[in-house]
Design a protein around this nucleic acid. Structure first.
Lengths: 195, 195
DNA sequence: GTCTATACAGTGATAGAC
DNA sequence: GTCTATCACTGTATAGAC
C-alpha cells in the first residue's frame, strides 16, 4: 500500500482532526470543530477533502504510520527486551495526555466501524500493522531460542488486546490506580513466554 | 446503589436503545431510531425519560446488571474452573450476534465517556462490577492454594482488558480468525497463575 | 400516557466571489 | 486556494390536544 504523500494543507487538516477528536470525541465531531482546530474555514476543508469521513480516514492513515514507527523504532536487539519495550509503548501512560486522547479516539472509531464502512479498511490496516510488528518480534524470539514454541500471532494479538482494552477502563474512565498493576501483569505474561 | 426498579415502559425503551445501538452505533444513535425499535413515538419517549442521554444511561444500568449476573451465575466451585469459565464468557463468541453487538456498543460508549460526563458514572459502575467479581474468584483461588500469591486486582484487570480489547479487533473488525488464538493465550496466562 | 405538530439549533456540503 | 453566504436537512426537545 503506497499511500499518496499528503499535501501540506492536508497534513494540517489531518492534525486538526486529531485535535478535534481529542477534544470532542467522534460522536460529537463536526466539520466546524475541525475547522476551528485548523487555520482554515469550514468550507475551505472541502477543497482538500470530499467529505468529513474522508478527513477522518486521512487521520487514521497518518495514525497508522505513527504507531508503526513507534514500534519499529525500538532500538534493543534482544527479542525479550524488544517485546518488553513494545509493551511499554503500547500501554500508554496516563499523563501522556495527547497520546492518551488519540488512543481513545482510535478506540471510539474502532467501536463505530461496524456501522461505517469507510472506517473499516483503514482500521484493519492499522491493527494489522501493529499485529505484524509485534508478531515479528515474537517470531524472532522463538527462532533465537528466547521464547518457547508459542503461537506468535496469538501472543501478539493477546498483548495488543490487553493494551487496547486497558485504554478502556484505565484511560477512558481515568481509573488511574489500575494502570501499574495492569502493566505488571503484562510483564508477568511475557515472563511466562520465556523458555 | 439501590437503583429504582424501572417501569414496564422504561424497560421497553431500554431494550429499544440496545437494539438501536446494535444497529446504528452510538455516533449515529437518534431518538427517532430508538422510537423505531419500540412501540412508542419519538415524543412518547420523553414522558419516561428527560433526555436521550438519560435513555442511554438506563441502558447501561441494565447492561451492568446483566453482565454481573452472567459472571455470578457460574456454577463451578473450584476457583480455577470458575476463572476459566468467566474468561470464556468474557471473550464473546463471534457468532453470538446480539451479545457481540452489545459489547461493541458498550465499547463505543466507553471510548466516548471522556467527552460526556453523564456516561462516566454508569460505565465506572459497570467496569467496577466486573472487576470485583473476577477479583473475588482470583482471591478465592489464592486462599485455597490454587493460584500463586499474585495481585488479584491486577490479574482481574488484565483479563478484563484483554477480553475488552479483543472486542475491538476481533469483534468490531470481524477478524474472525484471531478469536481462537486469542482465547487460547488467555488460557495460557491462567495456566501461569497456578501454583 | 401517547399522539401530532412544530420550534429551533445545528450539520454537511455547495455556489460563486475574490 | 480560501473566503462569505446559504441551503436542505436532521436532531433534540417541547406544547398542547386527546
Amino acid at each position: 500500500m503506497t499511500e499518496a504523500v499528503p499535501t501540506e494543507a492536508q497534513a494540517e487538516i489531518t492534525d486538526a482532526v486529531r485535535k478535534a477528536l481529542a477534544k470532542h470525541g467522534y460522536a460529537r465531531l463536526t466539520t466546524a470543530k475541525i475547522a476551528a482546530e485548523s487555520s482554515k474555514t469550514e468550507a475551505g476543508l472541502y477543497y482538500h477533502y470530499d467529505s468529513k469521513d474522508a478527513m477522518v480516514v486521512a487521520f487514521l492513515e497518518s495514525a497508522t504510520g505513527f504507531l508503526r514507527r513507534q514500534l519499529e523504532e525500538i532500538e534493543a536487539t534482544d527479542p525479550e527486551a524488544r517485546l518488553r519495550e513494545a509493551c511499554d509503548r503500547l500501554f500508554v501512560k496516563f499523563d501522556d495526555e495527547p497520546r492518551r486522547r488519540t488512543n481513545i479516539a482510535v478506540m471510539e472509531l474502532l467501536a463505530h466501524a461496524p456501522h461505517n464502512e469507510t472506517l473499516q479498511g483503514p482500521l484493519l490496516e492499522l491493527e494489522s500493522s501493529n499485529l505484524t510488528v509485534v508478531k515479528g518480534i515474537v517470531e524472532d524470539g522463538i527462532e533465537q531460542g528466547v521464547f518457547r514454541e508459542i503461537d506468535a500471532r496469538g501472543v501478539a494479538a493477546f498483548l495488543l488486546a490487553a493494551a487496547s482494552g486497558s485504554t478502556g477502563f484505565y484511560l477512558a474512565l481515568e481509573m488511574e490506580d489500575i494502570g501499574a498493576p495492569l502493566h505488571a501483569q503484562a510483564e508477568s505474561y511475557i515472563d511466562s513466554l520465556l523458555v
